[in-house]
């Protein structure tokens, strides 16, 4: 019996050994590396910011090889929830922290500090086959709330409108609800039409808009590819229709633009403070414009 079992045991030992042996040495190295510099920064949150945050992190790590930064997405809510649970150093958010979240943070003994790191325009996009090229804010609001249901009502072809939105945990979704559907009015109780498709990613919206001539979607300027058709927006039907761009956002003429935030638990110290200072320096701002976002003009 032993003779039968022995080879199995040997194989098992090899497999276990093979799996586990190299990994401790690798993690030992990373621990040593971070211990000598004391800097391992975690950064989680908004999917809108994730590409920007990654670009910052890559550049910063190449300038400071002893610092490692890990970046992940998941949505603004995820980032802030992680900050409250103390599982992340910097939370990215495409909206301001909500009062309930602030209360919860205080309950956990976390004092979130806010930094505006860039600005973003939200572009309204349609399929390139769609002849509609400009809309007023009121028309966009009416489309998403379900008052306008056919493209022919706003000068397009006789096609049903398929409304695409991000999931409700997305900061972009909340921003769009408050500033476009409700046009910034606090007591307005307009909702997204119930048949609005809630897609889990920005990419999902882009690929459906590219494929479907019925679709209308919205997404951060950083996600807009040249093969999408971007709609020019006017604040009212008396004002000019403006396409989103770095210039029009900085000039304040494009109406659907917002600030992007980073939050830390308490005042940032040490490596985290240095990183945030660098992000808001001209070097950081250069990366902001490279990725299609709008740098904060100071």
């Amino acid at each position: 019996m032993i003779r039968k079992i022995l080879p199995l045991i040997i194989i098992a030992v090899f497999i276990v050994g093979g799996c586990s042996n190299p990994s401790p040495s690798v993690s030992d190295q990373t621990i040593k590396a971070t211990a000598s510099s004391g800097a391992y920064i975690t950064n989680t949150g908004s999917d809108t910011i994730v590409n920007l945050a990654l670009a910052w992190a890559e550049k910063y790590q190449s300038l400071h090889p002893n610092i490692s930064i890990s970046v992940s997405g998941g949505g603004s809510g995820v980032g802030i929830a992680s900050l409250i649970n103390r599982t992340v150093d910097i939370a990215n958010a495409s909206r301001q922290i909500k009062t309930e979240e602030l209360d919860q943070a205080k309950k956990n003994g976390v004092d979130p500090k806010e930094f505006v790191v860039a600005r973003d325009a939200i572009a309204v996009i349609v399929n390139p086959e769609n002849p509609v090229s400009q809309l007023t804010m009121q028309q966009v609001s009416d489309i998403y709330s379900g008052k306008i249901n056919n493209w022919s009502e706003i000068g397009g072809e006789n096609r049903p409108i398929v409304r695409l939105s991000r999931e409700t945990n997305s900061g972009t979704h909340v921003y769009f609800l408050e500033n476009v559907l409700r046009m910034g009015k606090k007591d307005d109780k307009t909702f997204f039409a119930q048949d609005t498709l809630l897609l889990p990613s920005s990419q999902g919206i882009v690929s459906e808009v590219l494929d479907n001539p019925n679709a209308i979607g919205y997404d951060g300027l950083g996600y807009i590819t040249p093969d999408l058709k971007v709609i020019a927006i006017a604040k009212t039907n008396q004002e000019p229709y403006i396409l989103p761009s770095i210039e029009s956002v900085n000039a304040g003429s494009y109406p659907i633009a917002r600030d992007l935030y980073m939050y830390t638990a308490g005042d940032p110290k040490g490596a985290i403070k240095e990183y945030l200072d660098w992000i808001m320096s001209p070097d950081g701002a250069e990366i902001v414009s490279e990725l299609g976002f709008v740098p904060i003009s100071r």
């Binding site: 998941g74 949505g75 603004s76 809510g77 995820v78 929830a81 409250i84 649970n85 309930e100 979240e101 919860q104 999931e167 409700t168 945990n169 048949d195 498709l197 809630l198 889990p200």
Partner: peptide, 22 residues
Amino acid sequence: VSPVRTMTATVAAEMGEVAKAS
């Protein structure tokens, strides 16, 4: 032939952002 939202997709999409014990 219309869009629908299932229970499983709802939990998967929303569990990540929700504040604990809310």
